[in-house]
């Protein structure tokens, strides 16, 4: 009788879990770089102001006629900048000899034709005053700075620690809005809605104190050049 023997081979693969990890942790390291551009940013300022037909009395009234932009941003993000230099050039300015206190030499004006010292009645003083942005939680209140008035005794000039005036003649005026603490005024974080208080700018025509403007069409231009201040 034959005996048949069968040899069965069963291969069992055992997976061990938990304690025996071939690699229980692993790490990848990556260095990341980004670049932020240098930018002087100005937005929200009126580029054309038409007063329409106004009366001489309205121009003569205290405060004259104004137009305000309430959501202005003006800032630089330049590393190391101390603020913004603002150079304002008026296309027309009061010449010498007007004999009118409201029209000192160098005062930015709108005028009928070319300003003439012998015809003050055809000139109306204009100013541009901006209140820089600042952080809402900053105790320092941004002080209005007048960009386009002649004389060092003009509003803000010489009395505002955040402003310097280097030129007031010939209709050119240069002021500086400083980064008082690095976290206010021209710093972008202070000027962005939601973080700080936006700047505002007011254009003003008049008052024609001491005289009455004559009839006619008055024109003029204020050009502002903003740049990084480094000192």
């Amino acid at each position: 009788m034959k005996k048949i023997v069968t040899a069965a081979i069963i291969a069992a693969a055992t997976v061990t879990a938990g304690a025996a990890f071939a690699a229980d942790t692993d790490t990848v390291t990556t260095a990341i770089t980004a670049t932020v551009q240098n930018e002087v940013h100005v937005s929200g300022i009126t580029t054309a102001w038409d007063l329409g037909t106004v009366t001489a009395d309205a121009l003569q009234a205290t405060g004259g006629i104004t137009q305000t932009d309430s959501n202005v941003q003006m800032w630089t993000n330049a590393d190391g900048a101390t603020g913004l230099d603002v150079q304002v050039q008026s296309a027309k300015s009061a010449p010498a000899g007007t004999g009118i206190d409201a029209l000192p030499q160098g005062q930015a004006v709108i005028a009928v034709g070319t300003p003439d010292g012998n015809n003050a009645d055809a000139m109306v003083p204009v100013t541009m005053t901006c209140t820089p942005c600042n952080l809402t939680n900053n105790t320092t209140v941004a002080t209005p700075i007048q960009f386009s008035a002649a004389g060092n005794t003009a509003t803000g000039a010489g009395s505002n620690a955040n402003e310097t005036v280097t030129s007031d003649t010939g209709g050119t005026r240069q002021v500086q809005i400083r980064n008082a603490t690095g976290a206010e005024y021209t710093t972008q974080a202070a000027c962005t809605t939601g973080t700080g208080t936006a700047a505002s700018c007011t254009f003003q025509a008049g008052p024609t104190t001491g005289y009455e403007a004559e009839g006619g069409t008055y024109t003029g231009t204020l050009t502002q050049l903003y740049s990084d201040a480094t000192a």
Partner: peptide, 17 residues
């Protein structure tokens, strides 16, 4: 929400499993 100072920004991140 606002533009940071101009310049280069760097960092390193580790990803581990």
């Amino acid at each position: 929400t606002s533009l940071p100072l101009a310049g280069t920004y760097q960092g390193t991140v580790n990803i581990d499993i």
